[in-house]
Computed example of a mutant assay.
Amino acid sequence: MLRWLSNNFTSPARLRVQGVLGMNERNINCISGYNPRHLFPLVDDKLQTKLLAQDYGLATPDLLGVIRRQADIQHFSRFLPESGGFAIKPAKGSGGKGILVIQHSCGDRYLKSSGEWIGKQVIEHHLSNLISGLYSLGGNPDVAIIESLIHSAPEFSKFSFEGVPDIRVIVYRGYPVMAMMRLSTHASDGKANLHQGALGVGIDLRTGRALQAVQHDRPVYRHPDTGQLLDQLKINNWQTLLQLASRCYDMTRLGYLGADLVVDADRGPLVLELNARPGLAIQMANGMGLKPGLQAIDRHCAALRGPELPYNERATIAQALFTAEVCSARALHVE
Results as ranks from 00 to 15, higher is better:
Ile102Gln: 04
Ile28Pro: 07
Arg247Glu: 09
Asn35Cys: 14
Ala53Lys: 02
Arg3Val: 06
Tyr311Asp: 09
Gly306Gln: 04
Ser148Phe: 12
Thr10Ser: 09
Phe86Asp: 03
Phe9Thr: 12
Thr207His: 15
Gln283Ser: 10
His151Pro: 00
Gly139Glu: 14
Gly95Ala: 15
Gly268Ile: 04
Phe9Arg: 09
Val326Leu: 02
Arg16Glu: 13
Glu273Phe: 14
Asp108Met: 05
Leu229Lys: 08
Gly115Ala: 13
Pro154Leu: 08
Gly138Lys: 07
Leu130Lys: 12
Gly139Cys: 07
Glu273Ile: 12
Leu149Met: 04
Asp266Phe: 13
Ala303His: 01
Tyr221His: 12
Pro269Arg: 04
Pro310Phe: 12
Gln212Glu: 10
Leu254Thr: 02
Cys248Phe: 10
Ala153Arg: 14
Gln74Ser: 14
Leu309Trp: 09
Pro61His: 12
Arg26Asn: 05
Asp250Met: 04
Gln18Pro: 08
Ile235Cys: 09
Gln243Met: 11
Glu155Asp: 15
His216Phe: 12
Ile99Ser: 05
Arg206Ser: 14
Gly174Glu: 13
Leu274Val: 06
Pro165Gly: 12
Arg109Cys: 10
Cys30Ile: 12
Ser105Ala: 01
Ile102Asp: 02
Ala302Ile: 11
Trp117Ile: 11
His333Met: 14
Tyr311Lys: 12
Leu230His: 07
Leu137Trp: 08
Gly287Lys: 13
His333Ala: 10
Leu254Lys: 00
Ala213Phe: 08
Tyr249Gln: 04
Ala59Phe: 03
Ile123Gln: 02
Gly174Asn: 00
His126Leu: 10
Leu332Cys: 04
Arg209His: 10
Pro292Glu: 08
Met180Gln: 14
Gly57Met: 03
Arg305Thr: 10
Ser32Met: 03
Met251Leu: 07
Lys46Gly: 03
Met251Asp: 01
Ser94Arg: 10
Gln319Met: 11
Asp166Leu: 05
Arg267Val: 08
Val122Trp: 04
Tyr175Trp: 06
Asp266Thr: 13
Pro141Cys: 02
Leu254Tyr: 08
Lys46Asn: 02
Asn275Gln: 09
Val122Lys: 04
Ser136Cys: 00
Asn7Glu: 15
Leu134Arg: 03
Asp204Gly: 03
Ser83Asp: 06
Arg68Ser: 13
Phe79Lys: 07
Thr185Pro: 09
Leu21Met: 07
Gln48Asp: 11
Leu127Ala: 01
Asp166Phe: 15
Arg68Asp: 05
Val66Trp: 02
Gly84Val: 15
Gln228Trp: 12
Ala91Lys: 06
Leu309Glu: 12
Glu308Trp: 01
Ser77Ile: 07
Gly289Tyr: 01
Lys112Tyr: 00
Gly287Ser: 13
Thr60Tyr: 07
Ile317Ala: 08
Gly163Glu: 01
Arg26Met: 13
Gln243Ser: 06
His333Ile: 10
Ile297Gly: 04
His126Phe: 01
Leu15Pro: 02
Gly190Met: 06
Val17Lys: 07
Ile131Cys: 00
Ile88Val: 14
Thr252Ile: 08
Cys301Gly: 12
Phe161Asp: 15
Gln239Trp: 11
Glu308Gln: 05
Ser184Pro: 11
Leu47Gly: 13
Val171Arg: 06
Arg68Trp: 09
Ser83Ile: 07
Leu47Cys: 02
Ile88Glu: 00
Leu183Asp: 05
Lys97Asp: 05
Gly33Ser: 14
Pro176Val: 03
Ala53His: 11
His126Trp: 09
Leu304Lys: 09
Leu304Arg: 04
